[in-house]
């Protein structure tokens, strides 16, 4: 075979990639010409996203509070997600109340901090799994620090940043991409991760109650529909995605009820709350689904607007 010089090979590969990217762009119009929705509307979407951030960080606040209390705050850093998620809740509430159609430096900064803390937490939790005997094993995934949990804080940060960007950008884009699609992708990925977490823990519980299948069935369906709706324009797809996301949002709240029932199923029930609130199913975990579903709904409305204009 004739040898191609390395530089030439790289050039050719790059060129073929560019061709592919261009054709993908044309097909899915990722860089569609900017439209200019009005600022009030953009602010409304931003507030929706703030709400989703608020729910996610509230869930993190309560969940990491409980779980890190269970872990006796052995490491000082275990206080960090409590402080950051509390600040993120505050920032998000401020965002929800803020009628001005522009971003705010403090909010923006806090969302960045939340994202960074979430990412750091992922690292710490991963380390906690790996350092135990057995390393990356089912046992440690079940009982060591939950790998997926800090992701909720990371998502709260990312969605919060999105809320700020939309307020500012008349073109309604994030990192150059249409906001609806970008947020839709983030939401779908976040749902996938949260489903994995719920699936893992419900598997640990041997799916002993049929209700435990709900979070591994409904949210993945919603995420699938949301993803499809981004690439397949059409009312039916969007309506289906909306329904799926609404069900997921509802499930997040219902999950708290299910988990409260789960706690009562442990020895001593609620009377033995000091043990069961820690050993039973985590009360604050399911609302993460609601937070993500709200973000998905916001993304859908962006997509909808985009296609109507």
């Amino acid at each position: 075979m004739r040898r191609v010089p390395a530089a030439e090979a790289r050039r050719r590969a790059l060129a073929s990639l560019q061709v592919t990217a261009r054709s993908l762009n044309e097909k899915y119009s990722l860089n569609a010409p900017a439209r200019t929705p009005d600022p009030e509307w953009r602010n409304a979407v931003g507030r929706k996203l703030n709400l989703s951030s608020a729910l996610l960080s509230l869930s993190v606040l309560a969940d990491s509070g409980l779980e890190h209390y269970r872990g006796s705050f052995q490491n000082r850093l275990m206080y960090l997600p409590l402080a950051v998620s509390a600040a993120t809740v505050a920032a998000s509430l401020f965002g929800i109340a803020d009628a001005r159609a522009k971003s705010h430096a403090v909010r923006d900064g806090l969302y960045v901090l939340a994202g960074l803390t979430g990412a750091t937490g992922l690292g710490f939790h991963g380390y906690n799994v790996m350092k135990r005997p057995g390393g990356l094993s089912w046992l440690n995934l079940f009982y060591a620090a939950p790998v997926g949990a800090p992701m909720a804080l990371l998502l709260a940060g990312v969605l919060g940043r999105g809320a700020e960007r939309i307020r500012d950008d008349e073109a309604c884009t994030i990192l150059g991409y249409p906001a609806g699609k970008a947020l839709g992708l983030v939401t779908s990925a976040g749902l996938a991760g949260t489903v994995a977490e719920a699936g893992l823990l419900h598997f640990r519980g041997a799916f002993q109650n049929p209700g435990m299948f709900l979070p591994v069935v409904v949210p993945p369906a919603a995420a699938g529909l949301l993803t499809t709706a981004q690439f397949r324009p059409g009312n039916i797809m969007r309506r289906a995605a909306k329904l799926g996301l609404r069900l997921t949002a509802l499930l997040g709240f219902a999950g708290v009820g299910f988990h409260a029932y789960g706690i009562s199923r442990n020895m001593g029930g609620w009377r033995n709350w000091s043990q069961n609130i820690l050993n039973g199913p985590p009360l604050p975990a399911p609302p993460s689904f609601t937070g993500l579903a709200l973000a998905g709904l916001a993304a859908l409305s962006l997509i909808e607007r985009g296609s109507h204009d």
């Binding site: 269970r70 006796s72 020895m267 033995n272 000091s274 043990q275 820690l278 050993n279």
Partner: peptide
Amino acid sequence: ASPRGYVRMNFDRRDPW
């Protein structure tokens, strides 16, 4: 320890009770 048992089982951990 009944009905309440224990939660924290790892090294150097104690429940408040």
